[in-house]
Design a protein around this nucleic acid. Structure first.
Lengths: 254, 254
DNA sequence: CCCATCAGGTTGTTGGAACAAGTCCAACTG
DNA sequence: CAGTTGGACTTGTTCCAACAACCTGATGGG
């Protein structure tokens, strides 16, 4: 009986095919595990393995007591960090700090953020980016959880070298409309950014804060702002659930 | 016995903690399932659920007959599609088509690609980006599988409107050093790009082509090139395994 | 009529068992 | 000594069983 491919693989493949071809529409309920057991003459374990496969691929969501459903793709929000945009705001030193709230509000949805400010030693990775000594350096950390229409949307943590922002409004746990502007008022002008985007599975805490269903990876967007001398002024790390975001850049070619 | 959090959650948490704190180092073998069964006095099912949790998070890889190991993070390759780079190549109309091979070779590693060229109707998504009729439009499709040192690295599919490239070398299934240049020789100059990055779990075929271990998401980088009249000349879709890539942009702020 | 309760259905968790398939190394054979 | 074989070990697949947690809709009481 040594089939080359396991049974639950093939069951998953058949179900996936039904989803891909649209025979099972987004939002529609899949057959129950019991029904699938009968349909494929397999044990519940095998059925559950097949279903787990689909949920891990992000095609299906299951809810205890409710059933399993074809996942409907979120209308992905466009996260435009393009060059052109930052250019169009002439001489703008606005960081994306909270022009975010503005942009969301303009699109008719309701932004909300929880802000938490603390002073502490940054992760070594961040310390390196800021050119600080990982052992001794202190940073002001602004941790934000962003919601749109009460739905968790992204995590955004900003790190500033402590000596640069001591005594500024950045250290207050309130929305700051333009952290970049605050930096600028201290003569600290972000002249260029370096963005690095990586992809991974969420940690457990990220998963909880963002309410992510299984099989949802995240993009980590790390923006480091430099002044004209090449000194790093801040690092912002944004964790974006993969099912809710498109990151967009407009790039002039020449 | 109604514990609030399931047993396999807590077992996974403990193991994850060992990994996070470095008590279990990257590459090191975890205790076998049997040992864990004894250690936690749990059934094999429960242990396997805990382990699966970790593999799904990308922290652990398991091999049949070998054991389970802490996953060692790949030395991530930096995928620099920054503005500055494309600017520094004065008047360059090079797309990233195969300056890729050059860049890889310069870093002392060995690039290889399998190229497959065909003419067919593009996915509706691509047709829209190119401003073509999804029902009738034809595109020249260049599908590449890229390897570095024999390891699969990325999938890169380019779509050109068929009428734009008819009769050009782009239709030959060979490496083309500068598809952008080829376009240019027909008077088609890409004047600006729009990049869109999304994150998702790989499809099964992507998983196979790229040899991805479980728990590895991918970034999808879609670059659309436009001429100065805003006409879309091509779409390149690159699938980048999350464990092997950092996408980088340098962005001037003003 | 409205609301609380309850029964039935559904997925989640945990235990147990057996065999399959792959890996690794030691012992054996030629 | 080289190559093969075999056995022990490990993860992979599949079955069965029972209970827990949760949701939904129907039932019945106020």
């Amino acid at each position: 009986m040594g089939e080359q491919t396991p049974r639950y693989h093939r069951i998953a493949d058949e179900l996936r095919h039904l989803i891909d071809t649209g025979e099972l529409e987004p939002g529609q309920q899949l057959p129950t595990e019991h029904q699938l057991m009968a349909q494929y003459d397999a044990s519940r374990n095998t059925i559950r393995l097949a279903l787990r496969r689909l949920t891990d691929e992000g095609l299906v969501v299951a809810g205890q007591g409710r059933g399993s459903f074809v996942r409907k793709k979120h209308p992905a929000a466009i996260w435009d960090w393009s060059v052109l945009e930052s250019r169009s705001r002439h001489n703008s030193t606005h960081s994306n700090g909270d022009q975010w709230a503005t942009v969301v509000a303009e699109s008719g949805r309701k932004p909300r953020q929880e802000v938490n400010v603390s002073i502490r030693r940054p992760p070594t990775e961040v310390a390196e980016q800021l050119g600080l000594d990982p052992e001794t350096a202190l940073t002001v950390v602004r941790e934000r959880v962003r919601y749109v229409d009460q739905e968790p949307y992204a995590l955004a943590d900003s790190y500033f070298p402590e000596e640069l922002v001591r005594g500024t409004p950045l250290m207050l746990p309130e929305d700051v409309s333009a952290p970049g502007g605050v930096l600028a008022s201290s003569g600290l002008i972000q002249e260029h950014y370096q963005d690095e985007i990586t992809v991974r599975m969420p940690t457990r805490t990220e998963s909880e804060k963002l309410g992510l269903p299984a099989g949802t990876p995240v993009a980590v967007h790390r923006r480091t702002g430099y002044d004209k001398d090449g000194r790093a002024l801040r690092v912002m790390i944004t964790v974006l659930p993969g099912d809710r975001h498109i990151i967009r850049y407009d790039v002039p070619a020449e």
